[in-house]
Write a protein that binds this DNA or RNA. Structure first.
Lengths: 327, 327
DNA sequence: ATATTATGTGTAACCGGTTACACATTACAG
DNA sequence: CTGTAATGTGTAACCGGTTACACATAATAT
């Protein structure tokens, strides 16, 4: 392995000059720059990032903390983060916390020791102070941690409103709203938006807490649909829940969307695979991930953050689980 | 940050002794061990892995190369790899190559510079020599690279046979087999198994190449079903393809499984979410990932590898896209 | 003409570990 | 009782970068 000393020798300068040239800081004469550049190319020199990390206590690693890699929403997000990070020369370490706080802490500790440059946090296993005390650049993605931490979220309230309104507009009179995990702020915002819409429309509705997991959603919804035959519209806080609801409807022989309309939330590509394809409030997943990555990198590189709250608009994607619009 | 020198001072020994104690190699007297242990605890010392990596040219990082993080099969695999790696003290870096050889090479180069301990490769973007020349422990997962590289794959031939036979047993007389990407060995094994079954049963069949992507599968299958109304059974080389086929069937108003039976391959949990739920040849995804991780770690730690070819049995999971067994 | 500032470079210490090697002591074999 | 092996420890070099600081020269200000 060629080192910076080899390069220095070949270029006839000191290691300090080589380092300065490589990092573009300090003074380097034109002459020296040319010599170093030639030596680097001739020797095929590649900088050792481990040595650099040891010395600078920095790295080009970004941690992306995900609660559940098995929920398609997160891989789609991860892909966007990765895309952007790579173009800026950062490597993303995916941390699947599996909704286990211990696992998440373990990841954070391990990566801090590796001088990780920062974290993008999409999970909500740990409480806010824990992230705030990290002494590291952090971006909250798809959730709010606190006002000091730059945040990228969808306009969840608006989405909640839109989904509810869409069902009402299409004739649903008895709604079921599937709330997300109680401790998940974005899910609560969706609920607030939903309630908002309910106040402006006089339709009956009920709500139920439901984890973002298919099988649980299926059984919870199936039970409710059996107890309450009037329900003719379900709005889920996530597409995975909606998939469960759709399954439940099928299990009970309900015609979707004729007897029961369903709207999900997320806009994961899996929605298109279902039958009927899922109508949903689509988040701009790629954009969210991309912005989160950019904001984190800005922070890492000490650039000013213009706005701490990036609220991304959502959109209603009408597919098969709702009736044609009743305008 | 407390260093090994702080510990040495506090324990009244040299850094070499501390290091030997920490790594459990070389001679350390009982007395010294106790003193060091106490000092470590008192000072809350934690070893700096970056410094260690620089010195040893080793790390506890494992790279997991995935072709497409968006295909649910891979996150499920990743989870298993991660689980096992974590218990052995390794950290997994997920490398989503996005089926782009350049991206994959970039990952490999970046991680080699970080003294990555080894790779688990599930992608097939690069040719065999590239992986073989890595000078690093490698495990091939869900694909074969060559005989020198330890391999974990499903019994794909058997799976191909089973799926085909299952359709025939359930009355399908005109099969369509969706082949996977031509350069993907495991998919070809599934095809071989399928053909084997075809030779033992006199049923008509046709095959078509089809990428492991939902939308393409849907349109390819829809076209074929329109051209050939006789097809009454589809066997897909992956569940994602099968999802596309199911969608195509729905688009054309075909009753599944009455008019058309469908069997997928993989056993991803998404199969349960579809309607009807997908009958499939299930791979033991968790087991595959777990074994791959263990075999890689064995290699890394210089332990002997008992068998280079780990073929994991598959199983037929009968759900809703096939008729009840005709025994 | 002198003081000050900008430009340019090299030496050597440092980041925090590992480990070769030299040196000591103790145990055991012959 | 001596020779050899096993046990135990410390010093100092090394991994491959970064950078504070000292020093030199050229450019500009006064």
């Amino acid at each position: 392995m060629t080192t910076i000393r080899d390069v220095a020798k070949k270029a006839g300068v000191s290691v300090a000059t080589v380092s300065r040239f490589l990092n573009g800081n300090g003074y380097v004469s034109q002459e020296a720059a040319i010599a170093v550049k030639a030596a680097v190319e001739e020797l095929n020199y590649e900088l050792n990032t481990v040595a650099r990390s040891l010395s600078t206590k920095k790295s080009n690693l970004i941690g992306l903390i995900l609660p559940d890699i098995t929920n398609p929403f997160f891989p789609e997000l991860a892909r966007a983060v990765e895309d952007v990070a790579l173009t800026y020369g950062y490597t993303v370490v995916l941390c699947n916390s599996d909704e286990d706080p211990k696992k998440e802490k373990n990841y954070i500790e391990t990566l801090k020791k590796k001088y990780i440059a920062g974290f993008i946090v999409t999970s909500n296993q740990l409480d806010a102070p824990h992230y705030a005390n990290l002494k590291l650049p952090v971006v909250a993605l798809d959730r709010v941690i606190n006002e000091q931490i730059p945040t990228v979220v969808s306009n969840n309230r608006q989405g909640g409103f839109m989904g509810a309104q869409a069902l009402v507009d299409r004739g649903s009179k008895n709604l079921l709203f599937l709330r997300g995990p109680e401790d998940f702020g974005s899910a609560n915002d969706r609920y607030i938006g939903f309630k908002d819409a309910m106040e402006r429309n006089s339709v009956a509705y009920e709500t139920v807490f439901c984890p973002f997991h298919f099988a649980e959603s299926e059984s919870i919804v199936e039970k409710i649909l059996q107890d309450n035959k009037d329900i003719d519209g379900i709005f889920a806080s996530s597409d995975v829940q909606a998939a469960g609801a759709l399954k439940a409807a099928h299990n009970l022989g309900l015609a979707v969307p004729k007897d029961l309309q369903i709207i999900g939330f997320d806009g994961i590509s899996m929605g298109e695979m279902m039958t009927p394809a899922l109508t949903t409030i689509a988040q701009d997943i790629y954009k969210m991930g991309a912005i989160a990555a950019r904001v984190l990198i800005k922070q890492i590189e000490g650039q000013p953050i213009d706005n701490f709250m990036n609220e991304i608009p959502v959109s209603l994607v009408v597919r098969g689980t709702t009736k044609g619009a009743v305008t």
